[in-house]
């Protein structure tokens, strides 16, 4: 069990989680704390409630129900008694902690002028345990590499299919110069602290030794800042889709920077229908598209397309490059 995760649990809950059976503890993906409802743990294959004695149970009424006090303590621990420092995080609804783990928060939302201003009375916590998965991009690399560099790449997939993990690993490989790539300067614009999982500006997840991270920075602006200040060879940006992102991508690509980015979508058709993306596709900004799914677990590569959206088989890849 990672120490930073345990550090955010009040003693009562910590003891229960710590007395779970060993194999379960090692495969935990999420711990869910909801005020007045049973404490839940989720592993890759199953979901169980946790009893007050730390035993996994199936029935709801056997599970321990966290009290208001538990939740208040937990918020104090998560925020380190400093809610004022988490304004932005509370607006986004999650906090990244040391180790790149992430804690989702729910409660009463305070709205001002139609915008989420604050989260009050936090009553739900979702501790998502980050497990570094390295090397996932290696098998894919020969299909998207152009000689010894990565080219303009768009990763398309529905949520929870390993998009972010994939581009993080690509950033790491490019930064290290592994898998037939030459070592490059990599710039990550990490608007939601998902790629590098920064805490106090320091990346917590493996992003490579030559990687600079702009944490919490809006994508469009961040890309320009990176290009101006850090002269990256490769820019890595998560989840594009807004109009200003498109503009920034054109700027970046015309400045001679390579770009790896992702977009939500189930298929290439869906992607083409999104206004901001369709323009990029029409102008052939990207030279490779990777479509992911969850068919054989997260990160299954469904297909690879070239710049004209032609589906590439493994053999064709070698020829087109």
């Amino acid at each position: 069990m990672p120490r930073p995760i345990l550090g955010t649990l009040p003693q009562s809950l910590r003891r229960m989680i710590e007395s779970l059976p060993e194999p379960m503890k090692h495969s935990l993906e999420e711990i869910r704390v909801r005020q007045g409802r049973p404490l839940e743990v989720i592993t890759r294959s199953q979901s169980r409630f946790v009893s007050a004695r730390g035993q996994p149970v199936q029935k709801e009424n056997e599970g321990y129900h966290p009290t208001k006090d538990d939740c208040a303590k937990m918020l104090n621990l998560v925020s380190n008694h400093s809610l004022y420092a988490l304004e932005e995080e509370l607006r986004r609804g999650y906090v990244t902690i040391e180790g790149g783990h992430r804690i989702g928060l729910t409660g009463r939302v305070v709205v001002e002028g139609g915008e989420v201003k604050h989260l009050r009375e936090v009553t739900g916590f979702n501790l998502r345990i980050a497990r570094p998965i390295t090397g996932v991009a290696l098998p894919l690399l020969p299909r998207i590499r152009r000689r010894n560099r990565l080219d303009q790449l768009l990763v398309v997939s529905p949520p929870q299919c390993g998009k972010t993990t994939l581009i993080r690993d690509l950033a790491r490989l490019a930064s290290l110069g592994e898998g037939g790539l030459i070592p490059q300067k990599v710039g990550i614009v990490d608007e939601r602290s998902e790629i590098a999982g920064c805490v106090d500006g320091v990346p917590q997840l493996g992003v490579g030794p030559r990687t600079d991270v702009l944490d919490g920075c809006p994508k469009a602006e961040g890309m320009m800042m990176m290009i101006r200040s850090m002269s990256p060879d490769l820019l890595v940006v998560d989840e594009i889709g807004r109009k200003e992102d498109t503009e920034a991508i054109f700027e970046a690509v015309h400045a001679g920077v390579h770009l790896i980015t992702t977009a939500h979508g189930r298929s290439m058709d869906e992607i083409c229908r999104r206004p901001a993306l369709s323009r990029l596709i029409r102008e052939r900004v990207f030279s490779r598209y990777v479509l992911l799914s969850r068919k054989q677990g997260p990160g299954t590569v469904e297909a690879v397309f070239d710049g004209s959206l032609k589906r590439l088989t493994r053999r064709e890849v070698a020829e087109t490059l």
Binding site: P10, Q11, A72, K73, M74, N76, L77, N80, H81
Partner: peptide
């Protein structure tokens, strides 16, 4: 107290 008291409220610390 802020570091050591298992998340008791800031006020109490």
């Amino acid at each position: 107290y802020l570091k050591g008291l298992d998340g008791v409220s800031t006020y109490e610390c």
